Simulated assay, not measured.
Amino acid sequence: MRFKKRRLLQMFLYTSVFSIVVPLFLLPVWSFSSRWTWPHLAPEGFSLRAVEELLGPHNHVLSVLLSSMGLSFIVAVLAAVIGMMTARALVFYDFKGKSLVSFGTILPIIVPGTAFAMGIHVVFIHLGLADTFLGVILVHLIYALPYTVNIMTDLTHAVGKTLETQAQVLGVPPGKAFFYVTLPLIMPGMMSAASMGYIISFSQYFLTLMIGGGKVKTLTIVMIPFIQGGDRTIASAYALLFILSTMIVFVLIELCMKKFVFWYGKMD
């Protein structure tokens, strides 16, 4: 019986890996193919049209990519920090409206995306945040917080406050007790929360289009029309750029957080 369960689990694992890896390997092939129709197993021709699209000076793809990465990186860091502070408040403290705050952290997930975007757009128009870079950051942050808060809440429950309290009993100030004791323990969760916040922000299309009003361009805004239009060559090239840039940012997020802990550890 155990052998059968193990075989089923292995088959499920191999199938999952196969369904993820194969499309990734096909993206570079599609990016350089000029024509690939059914039932041919290989492209019927190759071209550099996708390279010209990405590197062409008229498209400003590099500036759009850097702007998108910067925007989503800001959202990721803010979402991780706010998620951590919110999780600590929900886990360690009792205050009026605690259940309302806890429920509010999942509202962006419960409310349909279209209704949320149209409602927040009206609010941002009155606040002067519509069609601005700051407005897009804020709406992405609102949409990412439910995920980061939930990640950090589970981790905060698991880590607890015992070690931090012991450090304070021994005379360590509360701030240093948190940074020296608790922060290293929750850093993996902070990295996961930041990564989740980044990918949510980086992949947003409708919210960015609605709040940004077409003035704030991201890689997703440029990529989606090619996917919807059926241009698989250009769409694959953009998708490949999307994946590679995301992997680079994930490495940067990890390095930045480790550098921050190391820098604070050197302070008196």
Score class of each variant (00 low, 15 high):
residue 1 M to W: 08
residue 1 M to K: 06
residue 3 F to G: 15
residue 4 K to M: 11
residue 5 K to G: 13
residue 6 R to D: 06
residue 6 R to H: 04
residue 9 L to G: 04
residue 12 F to M: 15
residue 14 Y to A: 12
residue 14 Y to M: 14
residue 15 T to V: 13
residue 16 S to K: 03
residue 16 S to M: 12
residue 18 F to A: 13
residue 18 F to D: 02
residue 23 P to G: 03
residue 25 F to W: 08
residue 26 L to M: 15
residue 28 P to L: 09
residue 30 W to G: 01
residue 33 S to N: 06
residue 35 R to N: 09
residue 37 T to Y: 04
residue 37 T to R: 08
residue 38 W to E: 00
residue 42 A to P: 03
residue 44 E to C: 01
residue 47 S to I: 09
residue 49 R to G: 00
residue 51 V to M: 10
residue 52 E to L: 14
residue 53 E to F: 15
residue 54 L to R: 05
residue 56 G to L: 08
residue 57 P to N: 09
residue 57 P to M: 11
residue 58 H to I: 01
residue 58 H to A: 03
residue 60 H to F: 02
residue 63 S to R: 11
residue 64 V to D: 02
residue 65 L to N: 15
residue 68 S to Y: 13
residue 69 M to G: 07
residue 72 S to C: 12
residue 73 F to D: 07
residue 75 V to Q: 05
residue 77 V to T: 08
residue 77 V to E: 10
residue 80 A to V: 11
residue 84 M to E: 04
residue 84 M to C: 10
residue 85 M to W: 07
residue 90 L to T: 05
residue 97 G to R: 11
residue 98 K to A: 02
residue 98 K to M: 01
residue 99 S to E: 12
residue 101 V to Q: 00
residue 102 S to I: 03
residue 102 S to Q: 14
residue 106 I to L: 11
residue 111 V to E: 07
residue 112 P to R: 09
residue 113 G to Y: 00
residue 113 G to V: 09
residue 114 T to D: 00
residue 118 M to T: 11
residue 118 M to R: 06
residue 121 H to D: 00
residue 124 F to S: 10
residue 126 H to V: 01
residue 127 L to A: 15
residue 128 G to R: 07
residue 130 A to S: 11
residue 131 D to L: 08
residue 132 T to E: 03
residue 132 T to D: 03
residue 134 L to R: 06
residue 136 V to P: 00
residue 136 V to A: 03
residue 139 V to Q: 01
residue 142 I to R: 12
residue 143 Y to D: 05
residue 144 A to H: 07
residue 145 L to F: 10
residue 145 L to N: 00
residue 147 Y to C: 02
residue 148 T to R: 08
residue 148 T to Q: 09
residue 151 I to R: 10
residue 152 M to Q: 14
residue 152 M to Y: 08
residue 153 T to N: 04
residue 153 T to Y: 09
residue 153 T to M: 05
residue 157 H to E: 04
residue 157 H to Q: 02
residue 160 G to N: 00
residue 161 K to C: 02
residue 162 T to N: 13
residue 162 T to P: 02
residue 162 T to R: 14
residue 163 L to H: 06
residue 167 A to M: 10
residue 169 V to I: 10
residue 174 P to R: 14
residue 177 A to W: 05
residue 178 F to W: 12
residue 179 F to Y: 10
residue 181 V to Y: 05
residue 184 P to M: 03
residue 186 I to T: 12
residue 187 M to T: 15
residue 189 G to Q: 04
residue 191 M to N: 12
residue 192 S to N: 09
residue 192 S to W: 00
residue 194 A to E: 09
residue 195 S to T: 15
residue 199 I to Y: 12
residue 199 I to V: 14
residue 202 F to R: 10
residue 205 Y to Q: 12
residue 206 F to S: 05
residue 207 L to M: 02
residue 216 V to Y: 02
residue 218 T to S: 04
residue 225 P to L: 00
residue 227 I to H: 04
residue 231 D to C: 06
residue 233 T to S: 11
residue 238 Y to G: 09
residue 240 L to Y: 08
residue 241 L to Y: 01
residue 241 L to H: 06
residue 245 S to P: 03
residue 247 M to V: 14
residue 249 V to C: 07
residue 252 L to F: 09
residue 252 L to Q: 07
residue 253 I to Y: 06
residue 254 E to G: 04
residue 255 L to Y: 12
residue 255 L to V: 10
residue 257 M to N: 10
residue 258 K to Q: 08
residue 259 K to L: 02
residue 259 K to W: 05
residue 259 K to M: 04
residue 260 F to A: 05
residue 266 K to Y: 00
residue 267 M to L: 08
residue 268 D to H: 06
